[in-house]
């Protein structure tokens, strides 16, 4: 599992490029003329009111869905099938399989690729140590707390070895204390394993904390109304991060754009 694991030659500069994308479901216009450009290994947070098409946008980028019009390119891949090869998707619910141990859950993408169970476990086991999950390998998901399950779910997404991670409110189901903890964990995990990340969230602080840039979407039909670059000083703890002036200023800009 390395960041070079994604298939095919990779265009180093263009990460994700979404141009003039429209998507309707029946008479409901979910996305209208959306433009979004994310360079490789950049992390972009997407915030917006409920029903603004954030999740639809992720589905389009991932290749689970195709737009009515417009172009989407993910590291040069344009067709839905090629995009699926480059994107890993992680939804709000952990979607762990209750009949598999945590280790077997995290090994799922490798088994799907055709590796034997043993070979997959051999690759995935060291990652448990690295991501603070050692000792839980043989537990079942129902034995774990929500925060731990979400970490396993993220590890599984990472194991897929894809360059692009699409995180759809990954911590939406967690309580705020657990969420702060897992956010910190995710940040350090991504520092170790750099990926191109689209993070959809309701939580403005989460977006500012975890992203290099925050994109604000309008209520339906979803359009992108603001792009706010984020640059925070690297600090030790989440607590320090959320109290620094740059963070507060950036959060204010995002909230302004949301309320505009």
């Amino acid at each position: 599992m390395t960041s070079e694991g994604a298939a095919a030659p990779v265009d180093d500069v263009t990460g994700i490029s979404v141009s003039h994308v429209n998507r309707s479901f029946g008479s409901v216009v979910a996305l209208q003329d959306v433009d979004l450009h994310v360079s490789r290994h950049q992390r972009v947070g997407i915030v917006g009111p409920s029903g603004c098409g954030k999740s639809s946008l992720l589905a389009l980028v991932s290749g689970l869905d195709d737009p009515n019009s417009g172009d989407i390119s993910v590291l040069g891949a344009r067709t839905a099938k090629e995009r699926l090869d480059r994107c890993a998707w992680m939804p709000q619910r952990d979607l762990l399989l209750p009949w598999r141990t945590v280790l077997a859950n995290a090994s799922l993408p490798l088994e799907n690729k055709g590796l034997s169970k043993a070979a997959a476990y051999e690759i995935v086991t060291p990652l448990f140590e690295r991501f603070g999950l050692a000792g839980f390998e043989n537990r079942h998901p129902y034995e774990l707390s929500g925060g731990m399950r979400q970490r396993v779910s993220f590890l599984r997404t990472l194991v897929a070895g894809k360059d692009v991670l699409l995180l759809d409110e990954p911590f939406g189901a967690l309580d705020s204390i657990t969420r702060a903890d897992v956010q910190q964990w995710l940040k350090s995990a991504l520092d170790e394993e750099p990926r191109t990340v689209l993070l959809v969230t309701h939580d403005v602080e989460e977006a500012v904390l975890l992203s290099d840039e925050v994109v604000v979407m309008s209520p339906r039909p979803g359009r992108i109304v603001a792009r706010i670059p984020i640059s925070l000083n690297p600090v030790e703890s989440r607590r320090e991060a959320v109290t620094q002036p740059d963070f507060i200023a950036a959060r204010g800009l995002v909230l302004d754009a949301l309320e505009a």
Binding site: S62, L64, L84, C87, A88, W89, P91, R93, L95, L97, W99, L108, P109, E111, N112, K113, R156, T157, A160, K162
Partner: peptide, 29 residues
Amino acid sequence: VDPQLKRMMKTLYGTPWSTFKRVEFPAAL
């Protein structure tokens, strides 16, 4: 079977057969 599980499998290299074997069949048990 939860349609989200099937979507998840699609993004994790799941083929129809591996999705049946690893998700649909156990979920139906």
